[in-house]
Design a protein around this nucleic acid. Structure first.
Lengths: 344, 344
DNA sequence: GTTAGCACTCGTACATCGAGAGTGCTAAAA
DNA sequence: TTTTAGCACTCTCGATGTACGAGTGCTAAC
């Protein structure tokens, strides 16, 4: 659907004014602010049309107009211009994130807090999906007379550790045996296939040695599970209370949804690839029906991977948020890819 | 200060009713609920006295009475009876926390979420202080051709890991050299003394080898810092929005304070040893002037260590919260002590 | 197609009012 | 001296009414 140029200009001006002030926009205000060479009556006629077309609503008779989900959608798709970040902005992002570049989780933690700080909105980021990745290596570190640590290195660059304890005294020799035997079994195995039956089969292979194994195997299973499962980094949750549009119970619902890693990550990962904007009621979750989500994929080794996203009020500066997210997600993708590279 | 028995009975009934309902308590309500064999006029006289003494206030003329900070204080100190948890309750706590017993951080994470779930309040827990503890051992695990992981085991049971990268290809031999050289330097050293000058001195000792060292030494310094610093585990922050007493901006202030690990942990650790209750304005932080904090120390190896605490409304069930916190903190102390024991 | 003018609608702010809750005081009773 | 009944008083809360202002839609003229 294409709008006449003047309608489009008016819609644009209304949305931009509303994003800035949060106040419903009336015809007079609009004339003053936007450079429109027509009278308020003409603007009113156009506004009435836009309202009939579903782009605007009036909260009540004597109030100005407020954009609807459809209005924002048209604005985002047809009017708004996203300009890439300046070089200095990109440099800032890169230098900030490089500090965290020792592990994917740290990078994403850093990315979430950077995005939240730059946009003044809530930001969340998912770690790379580990469904397809495999065990590269398992190592052991002795931590005490009866305890040791498993270190599982996965092919997606994720490294997980877990302590385990044994009923007997651990010696370097025993750990060597563990190392050899367990790497034989687990190296190259997909993380997703390391489940209970797999572990039981593995235990069986050890014959009488298996008596020593249960805690080790459990620790490995835990590591594999943690390396495979997507986790969610987040930042800026206190900004939730600045969303003036919502009340306490709505805020609580949102907060609980945002703290539910499973639901949140599956929502984010179900979004289309690339950068996408989901506005108000377009959201699959009712908790977000008064909010917008802007999400950007980052790619690791040229494959779409996790998501970095922003959650905020309908009236957010979409263009700015998109350009920030695109820069950050690109940097994150590069850093993680590099990290995997040097771990090969 | 000792109150006459009837005054005490009335104060107790008012506080318990207010904790239950959240409504100001009037003289008639009181007669109906508490088994008082006097008329409402008598109760009114007593209530007037208690108000003059500062234990109660009236929100407005035609409302009932509400306890003041002083009122709660008297109640907590002189009236309330804390009964220890039942054996089955203790067993539940123990079996829940044992699941997490592979590291102090996990135990405290588990403790915070358990306490939050049992009390339906916000719960926070600090990890043991590492000021006094020392490096027990440093280990290395190769994670890639140019990357490896430092594992620092501290005497307080905390284990920290950190990845580092090198400009050259890492071999098992190099790691062995690292292991030997760095354990010689760092073993037994207090975590708190591993600062920038110390690292620089250490680097100097390596002569030409030191060129290979900077990233390793930085990684060790980071590990030492993380092992030393107290971190705060928390759970149930969404309960903040159930505190009906507060508004959005107060909630935001509280939330930000609770997310400030430094301020929060220093407040908690400044509290007296044992279990303590801080009510409303008694709190040093204005953010908490409408809330109460109940905090319990846990002891590791018979020494007072971190704190497990609850933050909630003034009208919380103090006796119940105290008994839960005492059980949980005792279990946590035992588990962590055990953990350190088997790591020796 | 555009505009000026105007009647109309509706939300907000403010004042008024009555009902209800709870009190403190007083004087009588125990 | 302590307790109690009675009562006038105060204050909140919700409902009701009113004035004002903002913003609109419509109509008729340009």
């Amino acid at each position: 659907m294409e709008l006449a140029s003047r309608k489009q200009k008016i819609l644009s001006a209304i949305i931009e004014s509303f994003i800035r002030t949060g106040e419903p926009v009336g015809s007079k205000t609009l004339i003053n602010e936007a450079g429109l060479d027509v009278s308020s009556a003409t603007v009113r006629n156009e506004m009435a049309d836009l309202t009939n077309m579903g782009f605007l609503i009036q909260p009540h008779t004597s109030a100005g107009r407020v954009p609807t989900t459809l209005g924002y959608r048209y604005y985002v798709d047809n009017i708004m211009k996203v300009t890439p970040l300046s070089q200095s902005g990109k440099d800032y992002i890169e230098s900030t994130l490089s500090q965290y570049s020792d592990s994917p989780e740290n990078i994403l933690d850093g990315a979430a807090s950077l995005v939240s700080q730059l946009t003044d909105l809530i930001s969340v980021a998912t770690t790379p999906d580990g469904e397809e990745s495999r065990v590269r290596k398992i190592s052991f570190v002795q931590t005490g007379s009866h305890t040791a640590m498993v270190v599982l290195i996965a092919s997606n660059g994720i490294i997980k550790t877990r302590l385990f304890r044994c009923g007997f005294i651990i010696t370097p020799e025993i750990l060597k045996i563990f190392d050899k035997a367990l790497n034989e079994i687990f190296s190259g195995v997909k993380l997703s296939s390391i489940n209970r039956p797999f572990i039981q089969t593995a235990a069986a292979r050890f014959g009488e040695l298996s008596l020593f194994m249960p805690s080790v195997l459990t620790a490995i299973q835990e590591c594999a599970k943690n390396a495979r499962e997507i986790s969610v980094c987040h930042s800026g949750y206190s900004k939730l209370m600045l969303l003036s549009e919502i009340d306490f119970s709505a805020a609580r619902g949102m907060f609980e949804f945002l703290n539910n890693e499973h639901d949140l990550s599956s929502m984010l990962l179900n979004m289309p690839k690339g950068t996408c904007v989901v506005i108000g009621r377009e959201n699959s979750r009712t908790e977000l029906s008064e909010s917008s989500v802007v999400a950007a994929r980052y790619t690791v080794d040229s494959k779409p991977s996790g998501v970095i996203a922003v959650v905020g009020p309908l009236r957010m500066d979409y263009a700015r948020v998109i350009s920030i997210l695109e820069s950050v997600s690109q940097t994150v993708g590069t850093l993680i890819s590099e990290l995997i590279q040097i771990q090969k």
